[in-house]
Design a protein around this nucleic acid. Sequence first.
DNA 1: AATTATTTTGTAATCATTACATTTAATGAA
DNA 2: TTCATTAAATGTAATGATTACAAAATAATT
Lengths: 152, 152
Amino acid sequence: MIKHNEIERENIMKIMSIPEIKEYLNNNGIKPSLPRIKIFEYLNNYKSHPTADEIYLALIDELITLSKTTVYNTMDLFLKHNIIIQILIEENEIRYDSLTSNHGHFKCIKCNKIYDFKYDLADISIKELNGFSLNEYHTYIKGICKNCSENK
Amino acid sequence: MIKHNEIERENIMKIMSIPEIKEYLNNNGIKPSLPRIKIFEYLNNYKSHPTADEIYLALIDELITLSKTTVYNTMDLFLKHNIIIQILIEENEIRYDSLTSNHGHFKCIKCNKIYDFKYDLADISIKELNGFSLNEYHTYIKGICKNCSENK
DNA sequence: AATTATTTTGTAATCATTACATTTAATGAA
DNA sequence: TTCATTAAATGTAATGATTACAAAATAATT
């Protein structure tokens, strides 16, 4: 069962300019301070599914007073306003993604890159879950990506 | 694409007696010491998808010299011999499952119970992953279970 | 400008997991 | 059985990501 193209397109989070990010944060009830804008920009435009620590390290050269607590606080704020999701793939680390529509993640065990992919679990009828109400779907797959396979 | 009943049945991990557990550990290259048998018994027969800490607390009254390190060591051993899997649903905790065949988990946000369910992601063709080799599938769903829905 | 509320920051605490060294138990040869 | 060797279990300390908390800086409001 394929979704409407319109709906799909809406849910693909594209690269955003600074003014677009400001507007996006405002529209979601978040005052767009400099750290918030930069953190969201990093998260959304690099699409690397970073940890809080990776975000901190990526931004500290530019925002030289940034603290790790601010990164964590900001992630909590973004989560509360539903503009990011947490993803769990490895124990001991939380990663973040600005693409909030339902999708899965593939992690390459060679290059460690995390890829997004679309899927719809609703396509599978799960008889054990009849009568259950399903809120959040999370799926990840581990393996070797095309790039790493081809480069032997 | 439904699997053979034979294969499915094989993959459903049933309640096991102590002698069966001993044999199972032996067959998988693990010397069946008392802590190992008891830990596996708890994991397999209660099917509660416990954390290491929960296993420790469940067994300490009976195995009064048990240490938490032993639980962790044993989980690592079981993992290395592929008789358990790790499951990640909440940040900050690793849970374990003695059912190693591909299946998903449903966590009820009311009663916190974790249910197993069968599914096969191979039923969905994921075009983004063409050319990728897929090794491990992990899926969890959060929501409200039938029991909690019915009891208002 | 003064006051108040919000945001950011640094330090310390928490807590699950791991590292490591020691003790205990099991195994096997003499 | 005893001694020597290996494996298993244990306790304590270290690690590292995340959170708590209080203070400092910034922004908004009167």
